[in-house]
């Protein structure tokens, strides 16, 4: 890893200011960024740790009932503290392994937008709002393809607001070595309809499977999407699985997620 300057500010304003340097990069838990830097795929001039910013930590419930999670909150803290939204807590509890969950943060995961990460599916299926130091971005506008988001240079995710659905579940088919999702599907049933978001499968990153959403909004049951799967065009094909295999998994995991959402509390 090439050397860099390190700063650990205690306020969002100081972090934004520290990120003003050319090639400066925000550091969440570092569970992806540090391995990337070891491989010299990234070489920032400065890392600005967001771990010392108290106002970006923790979970609360907003006036509108939404679950508000600080951008620097770890996966372990979401797993333990997001009981009001069990589907999301379950997603967080399945990321990586215990030591990774103790460091990795929700803001870091969403800012990186790895095409096989879990949180993008949770945020998109929930219709979450990504709150930054500068603005609020709807999840539908935020994810813009593999490793690409609406964030500008130096913009920090300070909070993520999740509307809490009536029923939800996340199903992940783990790539056994990395524990990333070979395919992951988050299903969220709201009063006004069902949202289904898929990670790990598409060459365009996380996406909403609208065909299943329409069927499930009419009849929230695995029977409503029997034999249904998205087309294999545009799906990732690699040594772990072909495009057709991934497309098939999307159907299977969506049915499992619906079945689980019906049998478990929100």
């Amino acid at each position: 890893m090439y050397n860099f300057d390190f700063e650990k500010p205690s306020t969002i304003a100081d972090a934004v200011s520290a990120l003003g340097t050319e090639d400066a990069q925000a550091l969440g838990g570092g569970q992806t960024l540090l391995p990337t830097m070891k491989q010299r795929l990234a070489s920032p001039s400065k890392l600005v740790s967001l771990k010392g910013i108290a106002e970006m930590q923790g979970i609360c419930t907003g006036d509108d009932g939404a679950l508000c999670i600080g951008g620097a909150t770890t996966h372990a803290d979401v797993a333990a503290g997001a009981g009001a939204y069990a589907g999301l807590a379950g997603l967080a509890a399945g990321i990586g392994d215990p030591a990774v969950r103790a460091r990795g943060t929700i803001g870091g995961s969403l800012a990186n937008n790895d095409p096989a990460a879990c949180y993008p599916a949770g945020a998109l299926a929930s219709g979450a709002t990504i709150v930054t130091n500068a603005r609020e971005i709807a999840a539908d506008d935020y994810f813009q393809g593999m490793f690409t988001t609406a964030l500008d240079e130096g913009e920090i995710i300070t909070e993520v607001r999740f509307p809490v659905p009536e029923a939800s579940n996340y199903q992940k088919f783990e790539q056994p070595a990395s524990r990333f999702a070979l395919v992951g599907v988050f299903v969220a049933k709201f009063a006004d309809g069902v949202r289904v978001a898929v990670t790990g499968a598409s060459e365009d990153g996380v996406f909403r499977w609208s065909e299943a959403e329409a069927a499930l909004s009419g009849n929230f049951s695995a029977d409503a999407i029997v034999d249904m799967a998205p087309g294999a065009d545009g799906m990732i094909s690699d040594l772990h699985g072909t495009a057709a295999y991934r497309a098939h998994l999307v159907g299977v995991l969506t049915r499992r997620a619906v079945a689980a959402a019906l049998s478990l509390p929100t």
């Binding site: 570092g30 391995p35 740790s49 392994d97 030591a99 990774v100 103790a102 460091r103």
Partner: peptide, 29 residues
């Protein structure tokens, strides 16, 4: 492995298990 896969480097920081190969020393100040 030095890539946060193997867990040989696990230590506790403020009582929580972390992979010390994937945490900066300065973060443990």
């Amino acid at each position: 492995c030095d890539t946060s896969q193997c867990g040989a480097c696990v230590v506790h920081v403020d009582g929580v298990a972390v992979k010390s190969c994937t945490m900066l020393a300065m973060e443990a100040e």
